[in-house]
Amino acid sequence: MTASTYESELFEKLKGIRKGYRAPRQVLQALYARMMLEYSVYEFTKARFKRLIDEALDARDKKRFDMLSQQYNEWLAQYRSGCTVSEHGYEMECNFEDMKINIDS
């Protein structure tokens, strides 16, 4: 992703822009870094839950499956409306299920 591309996407999602002031580039980069960190933790945790649930299914362990499924659904409910990252008074809403990450090599 080029710098201008992610900056324009971030500007569209920023809630904290007041009186026509644009966020400094450092703030945008910090928001982007926080968003990527949150997204990474979200994807890691989601994959971990799915792996553990699959293992419980393979072992035919209904009790463990039910417990993990409940925990997964409770955890997932926290992210249904996304999350908010903030930096120096600027906030950005992140909805991980709609996120498409493109990495240009």
Rank of each mutant, 00 (worst) to 15 (best):
R60P: 11
I101F: 10
E43N: 10
K13Q: 14
Y6R: 04
R34Y: 09
D104S: 13
S86G: 07
R34I: 00
L76G: 06
Q26H: 08
I17F: 10
S81L: 13
Q29Y: 08
Q29V: 06
Q70N: 15
K50C: 12
V85Y: 02
M92R: 00
M99V: 09
F44M: 15
D58V: 05
L28S: 03
M92K: 00
K13L: 11
A30D: 07
Y32C: 08
M1Y: 01
A23G: 02
L28Y: 05
M1G: 12
E74L: 04
R60E: 06
F96K: 00
E43P: 10
G20T: 00
E97C: 01
R51F: 05
D104F: 04
K46N: 11
E87D: 07
R60N: 03
L28D: 07
M36C: 06
L68C: 01
S69Q: 04
E38Q: 03
R60T: 02
A77Q: 03
P24K: 01
D58S: 06
E9W: 03
N73R: 06
R22S: 11
G20Y: 00
Y90T: 02
I101A: 01
E9C: 05
D58N: 06
A77H: 12
A47W: 09
S105I: 10
I101L: 05
I103S: 06
E91Y: 15
F65M: 08
S8V: 00
N95M: 07
F11Y: 13
H88Y: 14
L37E: 15
E74G: 13
E12Q: 05
I101M: 04
V27C: 12
P24S: 05
I101G: 01
Y32Q: 10
D98K: 09
R60L: 10
A23H: 03
R64I: 00
S86T: 11
K50W: 09
Y79M: 01
R22T: 07
S105G: 14
N102F: 09
R60H: 07
E97H: 05
Q26L: 15
D58H: 00
E55D: 12
S4A: 12
A30T: 00
E43A: 08
L10C: 07
Q26M: 15
L37M: 13
C83W: 05
L28W: 09
K15R: 05
L76N: 10
A30E: 07
F65I: 01
M36Y: 09
K63M: 09
S86Q: 11
D98E: 14
R64Y: 01
T84D: 13
R18A: 07
E12S: 06
T45A: 02
R64S: 03
M35W: 11
T5W: 10
Q78N: 11
K19P: 05
T5H: 13
D54K: 00
R48I: 08
S81P: 12
T45R: 00
F11L: 13
Q70P: 13
D104Q: 14
M35L: 07
F49C: 02
G82I: 03
S69H: 12
K46Y: 13
A77V: 04
